[in-house]
Design a protein around this nucleic acid. Structure first.
Length: 473
DNA sequence: TTTTGAGTTGTTCGA
DNA sequence: GTCGAACAACTCAAA
């Protein structure tokens, strides 16, 4: 009676889970394993730990419903696998692939070691529409421009088959020990997560509910509604995707069924952006820490910026749209995409604080933190990324706020201390006439901060700093 | 092989 | 208020 281990990582689901389906088809016993490893390269952030706790709980419930269960262990991955193989006499290990360079390196060693010991080891693609090595230019080099990359993807026939259904039954689980979920200490000691519960339903069920709701009610308006942070216009699928509670393939298939809806192509384009982020990190592994455009190694990021960074991260910059976004992030573990660009641009360009510091903060506070997406997004904003954003493209937060939150609804929700200001002034309180400030109960410097930086002067300074690095090769 | 032009989630300025 | 131009740089596909 053969036993297989399915090593769950960022694929915490039963539907369209190729490693699990393969094991269920070919083996009589199944060990559904999750290995928690603190102190690993790029450990997940605090908000992601919250999500992980609940997602693992949900996964275990789903497994129990199919007469299986989740085995949780802690430690170095290869050691844990070898220990469990010994305990259970397992003959095979299956998993779905991850694409971060350091994880590819780790998994390759594990695969090689286990095969040498006579194990059957198989890995699968469960995450991307196209794996990074499948798409290259005619000269064999990787793409560095998104549109060209996506066009190349669209020329390939994307999927040979439909997404896999969840196995109807799962093979029984051998009697081996599991650590308790609680023992992983993933939940915060102080209750900064109290708002998270109302916002999110981690787990596969929540992922499918979110997708169905999006497909039914929101995707048709997605192309335009997605830009307005006060409206519920985005998919909200990002954390579910980050933990693999639903596959991109499933989302793609569900949305493509109603191809008449004009928001589809716009959303599917975002799925390709996600693929592209993984693609870039795979082909340019040092971009995790270093700018893709090496001229930016010489960029004059400002020094001694601790105070300003703190103001940014806590939503106390005095620029309402920036503060609203940073507070939404802190409160819910998520920030609207449009506002991510605005807050990031403000940090990199107006404050001239390095994108790496911003990326680190997002990494720690986002429930959807994903190394590839986070890296690409921040490099894009900083202007050093693959998409070669012109360096003079500097977001004006006031203009963006007026354009995308015209009624100030998003600002009033997250920055209530200025909610009394008329719409005309709410985007830039410092430009408000004194008597109107008075009437609105706003005292700059007391009830709401003065702007920590002059927007137009800092724009000029940023342009000068960018202009300086042009000469480097 | 070389050249041309599209693309690129923006802002400012001046007519 | 609205509109086009200017602000540069680089990748990549098509001619």
């Amino acid at each position: 009676m053969s036993t297989a281990i399915v090593w769950f990582r960022r694929d915490l689901r039963l539907t369209d889970q190729p490693a699990l389906s393969y094991a269920a088809q070919h083996h009589q016993h199944l060990i559904a394993l999750y290995i928690h490893r603190d102190g690993e390269d790029h450990p997940i952030g605090a908000a992601s730990r919250w999500w992980l706790h609940h997602s693992l709980f949900a996964l275990n419930e789903s497994l129990i419903a199919k007469q299986s269960r989740l085995i949780i262990r802690q430690g170095q991955c290869l050691e844990v696998l070898e220990k469990i193989i010994k305990e259970s006499k397992a003959e095979a290990v299956f998993w779905n692939r991850l694409y971060e360079p350091h994880l590819i390196a780790r998994d390759s060693i594990i695969k090689e070691t286990l095969i040498q010991k006579g194990l059957i080891v198989k890995s699968f693609n469960a995450s991307l529409l196209n794996e990074p090595w499948a798409i290259t230019k005619s000269d064999g080099q990787p793409y560095q421009v998104f549109t060209a990359y996506m066009n190349a993807c669209l020329k390939q026939s994307p999927f040979a088959s439909k997404p896999l259904s969840a196995p109807k039954q799962l093979p029984s689980s051998p009697p081996i020990k599991s650590d308790s979920l609680k023992k992983l200490s993933l939940l915060p000691k102080i209750a900064w997560d109290k708002n998270f519960y109302a916002c999110w339903q981690p787990g596969e069920l929540g992922a499918h509910r979110t997708l169905n709701d999006f497909a039914k009610t929101r995707v048709s308006h997605y192309a335009t509604a997605r830009d307005f942070p006060a409206t519920h216009g985005t998919s909200l699928l990002s954390p579910h995707l980050a933990f693999g509670e639903i596959s991109a393939h499933t989302i793609h298939t569900t949305l493509s069924k109603n191809s008449s809806q004009n928001g589809n192509s716009s959303y599917l384009r975002q799925l390709y952006w996600r693929d592209f982020a993984n693609y870039l990190l795979f082909h340019f592994p040092d971009t995790k820490n270093q700018p893709l455009d090496k001229r930016f190694l010489h960029f004059a990021w400002r020094k001694n910026t601790k105070k300003e960074f703190n103001a940014w991260s806590k939503g106390q910059t005095g620029i309402p749209i920036v503060d609203a976004g940073m507070r939404e992030l802190w409160s819910t573990g998520w920030m609207h995409n449009r506002v991510r660009m605005i807050t990031a641009s403000f940090l990199c360009k107006n404050l001239r604080i390095s994108w790496q510091q911003g990326a680190q903060w997002f990494w720690d506070t986002l429930v959807d933190a994903d190394l590839a997406n986070n890296t690409m997004g921040w490099q894009w904003v900083a202007g050093c990324g693959a998409d070669a954003a012109p360096y003079f493209r500097i977001f004006n937060p006031v203009l963006q706020s007026e354009k995308f939150d015209e009624g100030g609804d998003y600002l009033k929700k997250w920055v209530p201390e200025i909610a009394g200001l008329p719409n005309k002034y709410i985007h830039a309180p410092w430009q408000t006439p004194a008597e109107i400030l008075n009437e609105s109960g706003v005292v700059l410097g007391k009830t709401y901060p003065h702007p920590i930086v002059d927007l137009s002067q800092s724009r000029i300074d940023a342009l000068a700093a960018f202009s300086h690095i042009k000469t480097y090769k």
